[in-house]
């Protein structure tokens, strides 16, 4: 097995050009949950954790850039994230437990492409951009076009996630995050919801809603958003938002929960978040 641990991005890209089917490694909190035989069958691995360019949290103008291998513990504790993207800090603090947060990375959560990834609905409502790097160079895609299907992403052969860029949220916007899991920690979500909303002149002027574990991928609930934006801020709007959110998703029964409950919990959580705007 080829096992490479480059120190620079250039080195990594060269290795990926030569061997595009190298499996990139970051925190390994999902990848190592595999049968040992299977891990030995992989043709090669490329450890990204040693590449300092892919690690860290930094403002670049109006955009906060987070390196793909940055661990959730860094995101959770980052003053920049807590200040401007509290929903992301909250999501980071609800992933696994302390040990998992020390290893699991934002890029890994994205690349793993699970419908239950806790940080992913937050990226959707923050209108995150993903910078991919590969043998063909760099390209930037909106996160909403990155996660294509169940465990499917827009990553091409030999391509890796470089950075996530979060545009500064509108002034006065409120962010919400709620994970409804199987227990208080070390849980996989039954439903995970993120909302970013702004109110001006008594009207909801911005309303960005996303949910995980309710479809094959985390979804931005655009129909709900369109119905809510522009409405006067009244408690009934919260009921409507909850109702529409439940209508907009087609969750399934699985080992963690039921379709009925997911729809119910989504509606209730969306309603509650929206009510909090009112109060």
């Amino acid at each position: 097995m080829k096992a490479l641990a480059p120190r620079t991005l250039d080195e990594a890209l060269l290795q990926l050009t030569q061997t595009p089917d190298l499996r990139p490694l970051a925190g390994c909190t999902d990848l190592m949950v595999s049968e040992p035989e299977d891990r030995r069958d992989w043709s090669g691995v490329l450890d990204l954790r040693g590449i300092s360019e892919l690690r860290g949290i930094e403002w670049r103008g109006e955009t906060l850039e987070i390196g793909a291998v940055t661990a959730f513990s860094e995101i959770r504790d980052s003053p920049e994230v807590r200040q401007s993207f509290p929903a992301l800090a909250e999501a980071a603090s609800r992933i696994g437990g302390w040990q998992i947060q020390n290893r699991a990375s934002l890029g890994g959560n994205m690349a793993n492409a699970s419908p239950a990834g806790d940080s992913l609905p937050v990226l959707l409502v923050l209108d995150a951009q993903v910078v991919l790097v590969g043998p063909e160079g760099k390209r930037s895609v909106p996160y909403r076009d990155f996660h294509l299907g169940y465990r499917q992403t827009a990553l091409g052969p030999g391509e890796i996630i470089g950075w996530v860029q979060l545009p500064k949220p509108p002034v006065g916007a409120t962010q919400f995050f709620r994970k409804v899991g199987t227990r208080e920690a070390q849980a996989i979500s039954k439903v995970v919801v993120a909302l970013l909303a702004s109110v001006s002149d008594g009207q909801i002027s911005d309303y960005r809603l996303a949910a995980g574990s309710v479809a094959e991928t985390p979804v931005r609930l655009t129909e709900v958003e369109e119905s809510i934006v522009g409405r006067a801020l009244k408690p009934e709007v919260a009921d409507l938002a909850g109702h529409l959110a439940a209508q907009a998703v087609r969750p399934i029964d699985d080992v963690r929960s039921t379709a009925e409950y997911r729809r119910f919990a989504l509606a209730q959580v969306v309603r509650r978040m929206t009510l909090q705007l009112v109060r």
Binding site: A232, K234, E236, D239, G242, F264
Partner: peptide
């Protein structure tokens, strides 16, 4: 306890 039912047009509720 069901998902909230669709209210009447909230603007006029």
């Amino acid at each position: 306890r069901q998902v909230p039912s669709e209210p009447e047009d909230p603007e006029r509720a």
